Amino acid sequence: MRYRAWILLLLANLFWAGNMIFGKLSTSEFPAIWIAFLRWAVAVLFLIPIAQLLERPSWLQIWKKHWAFIALSAVLNIVIYCYLSYASLQLTSATNGALINTLTPALIMLFSFVLLKEKGSIFQVIGLITSFIGVLIVLTKGSLLQLIHTPYNKGDLLMFLGVFCFAAYSLLVKKVKSIPAFTFVAMMASVGTVVMIPFLFMQPFPGDKVTSFGILGILYLGIFPSVGSQMFWNYGIKVLGASKTGITMNLVPVFTAIISVILGQSLVISQIIGGLLTIAGMLLTSIRRRQRSPENDIAPRLDQ
């Protein structure tokens, strides 16, 4: 069972890496808001039946009790984070996007220190600083000494802003644990797709540009990272625990870089060095204080 859990976690992170690759490719055919909308509209078609089959929730009762939390989560994660992610991929590489996303656990840790007054270990503080340095190296293309004068890639900054939004969303998830996982994702995705509908009229659907490959890309985004990864991730947490499961998130930028190279994209030295530092920082922040329960440290991964 444990071997199966590790294999499924490998697939979960591979699918999330594919989200960056297919998200990047989809930006040539769809505006960012349409990618986010179509991805989650497809996902809802699978998430609601899965939630009903596995969890049999009382949908109306959950909505009445948690509607504000679900709506805010949908805006931060499904709408803002996803839109910024795909908007950034129009301007930056999938590898950069994946590396900046690796900063997420460190930002959650920082927000927890500042806003929730949680205490951390020296390893977590060092890991937080290391991750920031690694991402700065990626953002500045290695020109840390000229940090103020460096012309940043707008796409990198949009992804960084999106990661901030997801970190804020993650703090909300930590506070509410009474909603079953698939039910929560299904309701959040449903609300998010509805909220995005008015914004679709600002960027008309580019029907003349859409190809069969673009449609396959949207289907991939809606099924594999949105549904498959969520199922595999939850299984990993159940079998291995949240701390061990969380460490596997380091594989996303690795898989993304490998796929990008296979597709013909070259890697620069600043991406390699910054990526290694960011991943090292992530590993350090995963070292928990002994008195804390590892099962409650990492919320279900719903962002990628």
Rank of each mutant, 00 (worst) to 15 (best):
L144K: 04
G120R: 07
F37G: 00
V138N: 11
S85L: 15
T95S: 13
V191T: 07
T248M: 05
E29R: 06
Q124L: 14
S28H: 08
K65H: 15
Y235N: 13
S266E: 11
L145M: 13
K174M: 13
I148E: 11
I100S: 08
A257G: 14
G120D: 01
G217W: 02
I298V: 13
A32S: 13
S170M: 07
C165F: 14
F213N: 10
L277S: 06
I21N: 06
T102Y: 05
Y152W: 13
L38W: 04
L47S: 05
M188P: 01
F205C: 04
V44F: 03
D208Q: 10
L47E: 03
V239L: 05
L158A: 06
L84K: 02
A32C: 08
M249L: 14
P31V: 00
S26I: 00
A5D: 06
A167Q: 03
N77Y: 01
M109Q: 08
P105T: 12
V125N: 11
L147I: 15
T278P: 10
S85G: 07
S178H: 12
S226A: 15
T248S: 07
L145S: 15
Y83E: 05
S121G: 15
V261T: 12
M187I: 09
S226R: 03
I197L: 13
W67R: 14
I80S: 00
D297P: 02
A167I: 05
V191H: 02
F213D: 07
N19T: 03
L103M: 07
A186P: 01
L263M: 10
A168C: 15
I78L: 06
Q291V: 00
N296F: 15
Q304C: 12
F184T: 02
I148Q: 13
Q230S: 08
Q61V: 07
P198Y: 02
G236E: 01
K209M: 08
G241C: 08
I247E: 03
L172Y: 03
T27A: 05
I70D: 01
Q304I: 10
T95H: 04
G217H: 02
I269W: 08
V195T: 01
L10I: 09
A43M: 11
G162F: 04
L240F: 08
K64Y: 14
W34I: 00
L240G: 11
V44H: 00
N96V: 04
S293H: 04
L54K: 15
Y220E: 11
L103W: 03
L221D: 04
R289H: 12
S243Y: 04
T95F: 10
L219M: 13
A68Y: 06
L136Q: 13
L200E: 00
K238I: 03
G246Y: 06
N234A: 07
V185R: 03
G18I: 02
R301Y: 14
L14H: 09
S266D: 08
P151Y: 10
A280H: 10
K24D: 05
K238Y: 10
S293R: 04
I148R: 12
Q90F: 08
P204G: 01
A12R: 01
F201W: 11
A189S: 14
A94E: 07
L14Q: 08
G18E: 04
I129V: 15
L171I: 09
Q291I: 02
G228L: 13
A181Q: 09
N296C: 08
